[in-house]
Design a protein around this nucleic acid. Structure first.
Lengths: 276, 276
DNA sequence: GCTTGAGGTTCACGTAACGTCAACGCTTAG
DNA sequence: CTAAGCGTTGACGTTACGTGAACCTCAAGC
């Protein structure tokens, strides 16, 4: 029989830990003096403690260990728990490897473009959204900007409209003509008063932008040249981080231009992606 | 300007998160109404938030991110932190791989020896310990057991003695003759009254067992045959888990034999090991 | 018998990054 | 006028595994 102190020293654990394991019914001393409350452990319990420490080291929680040891679980179940734990660790290893890859990509980005800040790309899930939009074939993004202004003026000020957006319906951005969808999100999807609306020769129609599971997004501040550069950087980023494009890119105008050149535009570029 | 709700929805984070980041000075809204306390965020702050989310995803803590962004840390330092984080993750990957190996070894052990319980091997650090011991060349462990009894009787009952131990001074356990060190630990190292002590023809001398950084230990219950089997299993275990022997094995007698055959002996087998 | 060290219990804290709930104020739409 | 909806603060919970401090009791050696 050993007292806590002796037992703790032999096992090289703290006395506190032994009391704790007693408290959570993981390892009760073989005998507890009812008068003094003193705990007494047998030599055989050292084997028990060792088993606990080993299983803990394998990554099992104390709760699982208690179920396995105190509740006398079968060898098959134990094997199952170990296999499960192993699978868990393997999953974790994969995600940590991915993380390492991202860190390396970022380090590379810092190194290669010294003063240009590296892109901050966040992947988020986007729900489906209702929108009022029009399809247009335009010679340049500058015309798209004009179109946005036109729409802005045509819509009533007091209507639950959200952000202005542009969708490139053609994956290849051709300098000649752009196939675009231009419009505004609708904040309150309940508004049934928005089936169509006319503004000169363009008609806005109600549309539902599909949900996207993984949308790679980044914020750019600046005019059309900066936005265009952002598109190409997003492509590089996807390349470096193991994603590939899986849908039509979108642009969300977070802040409209105050100056004519649009140098204070704030735009969120959105790329639907998939793990390559 | 966006309110928390709008900003949260755009960024796809919770409002709570934004308030939290405000509270910990990680991302303060561009403006806070002093009357109502309402928070207002600008479009530019979305870029800021994105950077925070990206760095968080890379595994940095919010505290580190604050230091990097709010306290305007240099690119070099940022690079250093990322490299450090990468090294951390790599270290973690190594230890998790080791863990996987241990789990696999255990699964294999469960599978191969169906009813014999797999060995529970715990690695601990052992400090140097004082002991009273004698060196002996004996034909068998049975004689060692007898020697332990002899010593037990020769020593005064009331002396701060600890466990009985045996050290195999020869790595190869030869059936012919064993080179052993037999004795008892001394609990209170201050006892200067124990320089030597005589008992018939054997003399116990004061000795200091060296500290061991990594001691693989396991508990076996049973007679000499069981203990001997434990030795060989420990060898197999080390093999399977990537360790190798780096010193003289020790045996600690946790519980002396009550029966002559020693079938209720409880012994801790100790192998000094190193990572292979 | 006295001191001392080891034992006991109980409460609290500590991490990291929020989630959840309660109570309350302000504004607007019906 | 009132209820809905959004905003605020504050406190507590979560998860897992313990550690620390304060305070009290008890066994044992001299």
């Amino acid at each position: 029989m050993f007292t806590v102190g002796e037992f703790a020293q032999l096992a090289r654990v703290s006395k506190r830990l032994l009391r704790y394991y007693d408290e959570i019914d993981l390892l009760k001393p073989a005998h507890t003096d009812s008068a003094t409350g003193y705990r007494y452990y047998t030599a055989e319990q050292m084997a028990h403690l060792n088993r606990i420490l080993v299983l803990k080291d394998l990554g099992l929680s104390l709760d699982q260990i208690r179920r396995m040891l105190v509740d006398r679980v079968s060898t098959d179940e134990l094997q199952g728990m170990l296999l499960l734990k192993k699978a868990e660790i393997e999953q974790m290893l994969r995600s940590e490897l991915q993380r390492i890859r991202k860190i390396e990509a970022r380090l590379h980005a810092i190194h290669s473009m010294e003063e240009d800040q590296p892109l901050d790309v966040v992947i988020k899930q986007i729900p489906s959204q209702q929108a009022l939009s029009v399809h247009a074939v335009l010679p340049s993004f500058t015309d798209a900007l004009a179109m946005h202004r036109l729409i802005q003026h045509a819509l009533p000020a007091r209507g639950d409209y959200g952000l202005s957006f542009t969708i490139c319906r053609d994956a290849e951005i051709i300098d000649q003509n752009l196939i675009l969808e231009i419009g505004k999100l609708i904040d309150t999807p309940k508004s049934s008063h928005t089936p169509v609306r006319v503004s000169e020769s363009v008609k806005l129609s109600l549309r539902e932008l599909p949900a996207v599971e993984a949308m790679a997004t980044t914020i750019v501040t600046g005019g059309l040249d900066v936005i265009h550069a952002g598109y190409s950087k997003m492509g590089l980023w996807a390349q470096a981080n193991g994603y590939h494009l899986s849908g039509m890119p979108r642009e969300m105008m977070l802040k409209a231009a105050a100056t004519p050149d649009g140098s204070d535009l704030v735009t969120e570029i959105q790329f639907p992606v998939e793990q390559a």
